[in-house]
Design a protein around this nucleic acid. Structure first.
Length: 622
DNA sequence: GAGTTTGAAACT
DNA sequence: CAGTTTCAAACTC
């Protein structure tokens, strides 16, 4: 079934508006993505009507786009947004509209219902910052985002079972349609009554399906576990908890993906569900938090950080503003929470690497936050955030990133206690924690006070050295810091019954462990060995490379082959300058005409491995 | 906790 | 690219 497509003329004006904006120009100036081919890039984005220009702070990492996540939060309470027309529910918002929506003071309604702070919208490489103090609020283009705050018909209490999905490259763009429109409305995909979530894989999408569809539950916040910094000391943790409205948790650092889904079904309770997407199955651990426990004493309307998170692959900072202020997103801003906590005053540079943004924070006065592209951070963006509510942090030793250990109450079900508890801890002795041997370093995190490493240079104090080391390793292998385990598309009709084929990016090379011990990275990740593996006498209980217990290779159907080819084209374009980091979207014809018509369970994506194969090769040759 | 085993990462 | 060395996690006692 070939679906219709949104009118281009509805799209282009918004795109051009975005592209004409000073901020777009500014961002273009910052981005390594050179503007020689704006049309192509623009087409890429406009083809799906997402008014997302190239990321402001693009990473040189060739695979960054494939890891992109856009997790968008439902509006759990607000049924409509006064003053915003929704008469045309079939078009995507323009950038400005999206921003306006993102700035929607829905915080108020939530406060009235349970005083939850505005959960972070985990947009890929995005920062949510109040626009109150910045010009960005009116100009910053949104990452892929759409919401339904402005639609009177939206009933957050009713999310029916019609879950459609389309896939954008290997991502999962899922529509949660509260009106119960069936697949025949795929041509109406971009509808005003739809929330979109982009997941990395159908597995992830499926894992949240239940949550989304719980009639009495509203997803309030969805936080990728990997985005939650895993290194807060207890003291700073307490400090953060004091200001953080939501119980953060890091489940573990295994290869599977975890999310913290914060939902609410009553105004008195917040349910926190830890959702682990692993090997095709999902594990959910639900914890209830009395609202009183998550209410923070600073529940006034002053600006506070809602969430400060640090991701291994992505960095995300979400800041929350009061009901009257605005919120906007910015790409690729990294803020090391530990570093923030460690700062006792003065202006410091906080940045994870050369390509993320840097942040200036003045503490303890905490009166300003400046965000800039650290690659050229002599030119900070004019963005300020009042951090005064955070207050001075109790950390004395700024050389360590503090360590976020999960609240025992929160994390009572957390696995992997033995090794690291809930966060990475290394024990390096000779590598200075500047090689991939070091798990912390490999995860692009700084070592913490919980590490037992010796002569550690993987600290903020040695930031330059760390960046240098990362750069060197990436020059050798651009994928060095990408996840080792990649997911593959679902096979079969029931994602719950069919284990998701995931596989190790490079495959293991086990000789003696029979792939039955955690020496084997495949086994450790809970996945079977694949044809990529060169292991001997493989007896991996999760699946052997000889095919036993492994899922058959996904055959790319014709339409998906087209997708692959299209992806290739996009990648070539994207790599023209040797830089790729933006989300690439297929043309709506392809998406609407092929993928969208497939029910979620049947949809097949270009696998991560395929993308890596494609992307890696192209990236290297380009 | 110390020592051993293992395989990835790094090196040549 | 293959062989070797180094390294730190996993494992055993």
């Amino acid at each position: 079934m070939v679906m219709g497509t949104p009118e281009r003329n509805q799209i282009n004006p918004s795109l051009s508006r975005v592209q004409d904006s000073p901020v777009f120009n500014f961002i273009n100036g910052l981005s390594p993505i050179k503007p020689e081919k704006p049309d192509q890039i623009g087409q890429t984005f406009s083809s799906l009507s997402f008014p997302s220009p190239p990321r402001a702070f693009a990473s040189p990492n060739l695979t960054s786009f494939k890891e992109s996540k856009v997790l968008k939060r439902h509006n759990p309470f607000g049924k409509s947004r006064p003053g915003v027309s929704s008469e045309d529910g079939n078009k995507f918002q323009t950038s400005d509209e999206a921003i306006a929506d993102s700035c929607h003071p829905y915080h108020n309604s939530r406060e009235s219902q349970g005083n939850f702070h505005d959960g972070i919208s985990a947009v890929d490489d995005s920062i949510a910052l109040p626009g109150e103090h910045t010009d960005f609020s009116a100009e910053i283009p949104q990452a892929l985002k759409y919401n339904n705050w402005g639609n009177p018909g939206y009933d957050p209490g009713h999310v029916d079972n019609s879950l459609d999905s389309i896939e954008v490259l290997n991502q999962e763009l899922v529509r949660f349609d509260p009106k119960g429109q069936e697949s025949e409305h795929c041509d109406n995909l971009i509808s005003g009554d739809t929330d979109f979530f982009v997941f990395n894989s159908p597995n992830e999408a499926a894992a949240f399906k239940d949550i989304m569809q719980k009639p009495d539950s509203h997803l309030m916040s969805l936080i990728p576990e990997s985005s939650i910094y895993n290194g807060l000391r207890d003291d700073s943790k307490a400090k953060i908890e004091e200001y953080h409205p939501e119980p953060l948790a890091v489940i573990d650092q295994m290869q599977d993906k975890h999310y913290v889904a914060i939902t609410s079904n009553t105004k008195d309770k917040a349910n926190v569900e830890f959702v682990s997407v692993m090997n095709g199955s999902k594990r959910r651990r639900c914890l209830d938090f009395e609202t009183a426990n998550v209410q923070r004493k600073n529940s006034d309307h002053n600006l506070k950080f809602d969430s400060l998170v640090h991701s291994n692959e992505k960095q995300l900072v979400a800041a929350k503003c009061n009901s009257s202020s605005q919120q906007c997103t910015m790409p690729a801003v990294g803020l090391d929470l530990n570093a923030l906590a460690a700062l006792k005053g003065g202006k410091k540079v906080i940045s994870n690497d050369n390509w993320s943004c840097g942040i200036h924070v003045n503490l303890p006065s905490c009166t300003s936050l400046q965000i800039y592209n650290s690659h050229e951070y002599q030119d900070p963006l004019a963005m300020e955030v009042d951090l005064s509510d955070i207050g001075p942090q109790p950390i004395e030793d700024s050389s360590y990133a503090s360590d976020f250990t999960v609240d025992e109450d929160v994390n009572q079900n957390s696995p992997q206690k033995k090794r690291h508890g809930d966060c990475k801890r290394c024990n390096c002795k000779k590598s200075k924690c500047l090689k991939l041997y070091c798990e912390c370093f490999a995860a692009r995190t700084y070592c913490t006070g919980n590490c037992s490493c010796k002569n550690c240079h993987n600290k903020l104090d040695h930031r330059e050295e760390v960046l240098q080391a990362r750069k060197q390793i990436e020059s050798r292998n651009p994928l060095a810091f990408t996840p080792k385990v990649i997911s593959e598309p679902e096979i079969g009709n029931d994602p719950n019954k069919t284990p998701a084929p995931s596989r190790h990016k490079r495959g293991c090379n086990c000789k003696k462990s029979l792939c039955q011990k955690k020496y084997c990275e495949c086994f450790q990740a809970g996945i079977g060995c694949s044809m990529n593996c060169r292991c001997d006498a493989c007896k991996n209980t999760f699946g052997r490379k000889d095919g036993v217990e492994t899922q058959p290779e996904v055959e790319i159907e014709a339409c998906d082959k087209e997708v692959v080819e299209s992806s290739l084209q996009k990648i070539e374009i994207q790599n023209f300058d040797g830089v790729s980091s933006s989300l690439n979207f297929l043309s709506e014809e392809k998406i609407f005409g092929t993928l969208c018509s497939q029910p979620f369970e049947h949809s097949q994506a270009v696998s991560d491995q395929e993308m890596i194969d494609i992307f890696g090769e192209r990236g290297r040759s380009g």
